[in-house]
């Protein structure tokens, strides 16, 4: 399964990088989203997916062992990453709107010309 997910991640990265290299700023933003999802997956995979079972401590037990559950640390990291991704996405979108409003173009190559007057 790891192999499949690893290939999937590679595919996501390939698509993301391809999108990043476009001149259109909308595609660039899509690329950022794809890559952030892929990166989250890498972190998730690094905790190991062989163990399954939710990462909670049972009602009677006092402690849990890693044998019976998914590693909780990557989950905590990804959880904040997702919410931050949400904030950053909103920010990029606002930035893009402003960029388009100011320059009237969505071609990134125009950007290099506008800042040297």
């Amino acid at each position: 399964m790891e192999l499949v997910i690893a290939i999937f991640i590679g595919l996501l990265y390939a698509s993301g990088v391809y999108l990043l290299l476009r001149r259109s700023i909308v595609k660039l933003i899509l690329g950022v989203f794809v890559i952030s999802n892929a990166t989250n997956l890498i972190i998730f995979l690094s905790g190991g997916i062989t163990r399954s079972g939710v990462s909670f401590i049972g009602d009677e037990a006092e402690k849990a062992t890693l044998e019976t559950m998914t590693d909780p640390l990557p989950q905590a990291l990804i959880l904040t990453a997702i919410v931050i991704g949400l904030g950053i996405a909103a920010y990029i979108l606002a930035l893009k709107y402003k960029y388009f409003e100011t320059t009237g173009t969505h071609d990134l190559d125009q950007l290099s010309k506008t800042d040297q007057k």
Partner: peptide
Amino acid sequence: IALSVGAMMTMIVL
């Protein structure tokens, strides 16, 4: 370039 980066990431993950 994109495909190479993707392949590299797969290698890293593995």
